[in-house]
């Protein structure tokens, strides 16, 4: 197939896909990849630089940073994926309704997205977290339900233009129901941008989690997440460069890989 050939030619696509697969495998087989317990403290070994025993060095409590980063990928990636899934689902559903029906439905949904976009998300999150508590599920829900408006706008625009297309009008003229038109005729043709948006939502969610954790609003310690480790490293940047550098590098590489994947996917689907 033509797309297959293009994929082979697109080196960035392959490159980013390899990195992401690697990260996945790392999260999946985390227990087999580490020699230390990420939670075990050895205070006498605190802040040892990278060496043969502790590849990424140890933290202020003498925990192995390598093990913590590897285990942290489980939380970071799962938050990234599940939140992105919530964003895409909610965004697609609301965007589709707004774009297809227009009028008052559109107005209501779009005002809601405006409110969420202009609302300072941080305050919302601080409020919500002080009301409930900052568990895994809550973080996912908060990131997911504040991130969908971007997707909704995109899907809405796509639906609005597809709705007016002749082939959709032709199906309407045949007497098809709205559900059939949306699911069988418009959605499959709007899939390309949605797939791209999904790929780009994952790094956004991962960054959001890291940011929240860094501020102490994320997953509570001692569970290792990339954001948590960064937070703990705060204050030790001068004495122990490795403390922040390794989790930071993982966040950077992951986010970059997903962004590159999204961009190259866009190119592939556009051409």
């Amino acid at each position: 197939m033509i797309l297959g050939k293009r994929v082979q030619k697109n080196k960035i696509f392959i490159f980013s896909l390899v990195i992401i697969t690697g990260l996945f495998l790392m999260a999946l087989f985390a227990p087999h990849l580490v020699s230390h317990d990420p939670l075990k403290t050895e205070t006498e070994n605190w802040l040892t630089p990278p060496g043969p025993d502790n590849w990424f060095g140890t933290d202020r409590l003498g925990r192995d940073i390598y093990s913590r980063v590897v285990f942290g990928s489980r939380i970071s990636l799962s938050i990234g994926f599940i939140s992105a899934a919530i964003m895409i689902f909610t965004g697609t559903l609301l965007g589709a309704l707004a774009g297809y029906y227009g009028g008052i439905v559109d107005n209501l949904i779009m005002r809601l997205t405006d409110i969420i976009i202009v609302f300072p998300v941080l305050f919302l999150i601080i409020t919500l977290i002080s009301l409930f508590d900052s568990g895994f599920i809550h973080i996912i829900l908060i990131i997911g339900f504040t991130g969908w408006p971007v997707v909704a706008r995109l899907v809405r625009a796509e639906f609005m233009s597809l709705r007016e297309r002749d082939f959709v009008q032709a199906i309407r003229a045949l007497g098809a129901s709205d559900l059939r038109i949306i699911t069988r005729h418009i959605l499959p043709n709007a899939l390309d941008p949605i797939v791209v948006a999904a790929t780009l939502s994952v790094p956004a969610a991962i960054l959001a989690e890291a940011g929240l954790s860094f501020l102490g609003l994320g997953i509570p310690a001692p569970v290792p997440t990339w954001g948590n480790i960064l937070r703990e490293a705060h204050g030790y940047f001068r004495q122990a460069w490795w403390y922040a550098a390794f989790p930071g590098a993982f966040i950077f590489v992951t986010v970059m890989a997903f962004n590159l994947l999204g961009e190259s996917l866009k190119d592939l689907l556009d051409s």
């Binding site: 297309r165 002749d166 082939f167 009008q169 032709a170 199906i171 005729h185 499959p188 043709n189």
Partner: peptide, 11 residues
């Protein structure tokens, strides 16, 4: 419809 290209679903 007039446009034989736009009036058929592509997929």
């Amino acid at each position: 419809f007039q446009d034989p290209y736009a009036s058929l679903p592509p997929r």
